[in-house]
Nucleic acid binder design. Structure first.
Lengths: 354, 354
DNA sequence: TGTTAGCACTCGTATGTGGAGAGTGCTAAA
DNA sequence: TTTAGCACTCTCCACATACGAGTGCTAACA
């Protein structure tokens, strides 16, 4: 009696249920649809269609005498096949572009502000992951002695290592240096490392610096332990991916999260930044927007959420991920457009300022 | 009938009410105190004393037939005069020190980890404010051309400016540079600026670089517009204070915040990092611990919270603020000890690694 | 065969009531 | 001045009831 593929009427009704549920967060009844989306059929017919949709697993009833609520499968079908991309208004586009364009030099600032932009425009949680540096190419290394007194450093000192990557990302950290390395030794090491290592990925450089034989080849000479240790330390930045989140408090406006026991697991998870990073970064950097719905998210606390994300780039390289976390009941077409547009705007910022 | 100063019994009872309320978050009755803190007097006597404390404004009743709850004034008296500092256990001290000691080079990482340590040990919100740099002394400036091709930069390029401050804090940002400045000009500017500006505060340097006459005196020559603009840009880092928070979800375990309308204003406020910074940084850097109780906090959302904070230093200079935000009902003596000890441990980390 | 109207049924939500318990203030006795 | 006893108050919880929204089913209709 029901064709297995979705016929026109089923699609219409499913879409109506999803749209209506998005606005009210309450189960949608047949009468409601008849009133709001007068599609030329009566409530009774809609009821029949809804029963069909339920059989297919696209909608469900919270209790036997309630209206219908979309299931995750229903949302998946909607996102994959029914939804048409919502064009952002020019006003919104301008808003995003202006705020992105006003972001200034500091790399941290860009990350922080972009997550704020995303959250404010989507009214959900905006997030930005910092770049994974291991695959980045070294463009320039600068070693700046800090403690050394004018070339005769008699005491154990420290060196500020500044790593400039091809993508424009700058990373600096402080390296302790054995006292038998004078400032001019450091300068020599700096010159050699720049000559030999620029153009290689950080991952490759770390491999090389962990192998004493490789290092010897680079320096083309016997090496003191101090130089070996120093070189290793220079490139051993503990590269964790950082996550910037903004707008978590927007969830207080979401009716389905009003109860504390719904909110708590989510907020606990969001504080474990490393888990969020793990949730999102290992995906191969497929271009384009990804949508993860409800319990497709493997972490506890995210069962009632969906994630829409994309990646941002600079000079063609994938740098990191940006996206939005919202409730499963989410205007996907709009959020997809927001994330997509913001990712592009942010990529432009990186290309221009870094 | 009641002496205006707090006599011994009133102090005992007030302390008992506060301690008991800290644990249960429920109004404390006279019988409860008699049972738990057998202080040799009957419930009826305690009732009389409680009535006196209520008259003084130190405790109150949520409703006429309930037990007593400490008021903010009561907490203030407790913190200022009754409370004795709680010594942390050696285990806790070790825990803090170990985790602080394991913090590595990256300045951002230290900030982030310290707020996490504070929140985990206190079970409340830990926060760390980044240094206000304007009063920091410049130790070293390094200008690193990025785009220039081997001394003949024919196109408009960019320079990475690395500012190393006396406190050990490193700040870098990217400066656009007019195409008529060659790499060797940049090196010259770098040398001169280091000669003339090292040892001055960032605030002073910014004053100088905004005054063309001052700049001319520094460079001891006529200046092209390019050099003037470049010098200004080099030192014009938009220095906002950053706030790192951790442990907000601990508030889900606090009974008085279980209702959403209690939680929401707080979380909304916490996301406005700039307001938090304003709340805490303008205080003159008085040494020692500060405790701000309940509505003494001027921002909406903090009425039910208290803040315990102190500052961290490096080489004698005040760098920033660290502290804990918890509910007004808070074991102040313990939290004060935690913040105090962590501030010291963090200061040591800064002195050693930066 | 597909669609519509009518109707009985179900179940969640809101509302109201009563009793138990905790804690007080007051009074009178020690 | 302290204590015991007692009446009073107020909150909280459990239970029952009424209401309403929405369904599935059946029968009539195009």
């Amino acid at each position: 009696m029901t064709t297995s593929a979705l016929d026109y009427r089923k699609r219409e009704v499913l879409e109506a249920i999803i749209e209506c549920y998005n606005q009210t967060a309450a189960p949608v009844g047949s009468r409601t649809i008849e009133r709001l989306y007068g599609m030329g059929i009566s409530a009774a017919t809609i009821r029949n269609t809804m029963a069909d949709l339920e059989e297919l697993g696209y909608v469900t009833q919270p209790h036997p005498s309630a209206g219908r609520v979309p299931t995750e499968i229903g949302y998946r079908v909607y996102v994959d096949t029914l939804m048409e991309a919502e064009e952002l208004s020019n006003k919104e586009k301008l808003l995003i572009q202006e705020r992105c364009a006003s972001l200034e030099g500091s790399y941290e600032g860009i990350i922080e502000q972009t997550s704020k932009i995303l959250s404010e425009i989507s009214h959900y949680i905006g997030f930005v992951l910092t770049p994974e540096l291991h695959d980045s190419i070294l463009r320039r290394l600068e070693l700046i002695p800090i403690d050394g007194d004018k070339d005769n450093s008699a005491h154990r000192g420290r060196v500020l290592a500044v790593l400039l990557m091809a993508s424009g990302v700058v990373k600096n950290h402080i390296v302790s240096v054995s006292k038998d390395l004078a400032d001019k030794d450091i300068r020599g090491i700096n010159r050699i490392l720049n000559e030999k290592l620029v153009g290689l990925s950080l991952r490759r450089i770390q491999q090389i610096s962990h192998d004493t034989a490789d290092l010897r080849a680079i320096f083309d000479t016997d090496l003191s332990d101090s130089i070996v240790a120093f070189t290793r330390d220079t490139f051993s930045l503990n590269q964790e991916i950082h996550v910037h989140l903004d707008g978590a408090s927007n969830f207080f406006s979401q009716p389905e999260f009003l109860e504390v026991d719904k909110m708590e697991p989510l907020f606990r998870l969001l504080e474990q930044k490393d888990r969020i990073a793990g949730l999102l970064s290992p995906q191969q950097p497929t271009s384009g927007i990804q949508v993860v719905i409800g319990s497709e998210n493997k972490y506890e606390g995210m069962e009632m959420c969906s994630v829409v994300y994309s990646c941002y780039t600079s000079h063609g390289d994938v740098l990191g991920t940006i996206g939005v976390i919202g409730p499963t009941r989410m205007p996907y077409s709009r959020v997809v457009s927001i994330v997509d547009f913001t990712a592009q705007a942010m990529s432009q910022v990186f290309e221009h300022t870094l």
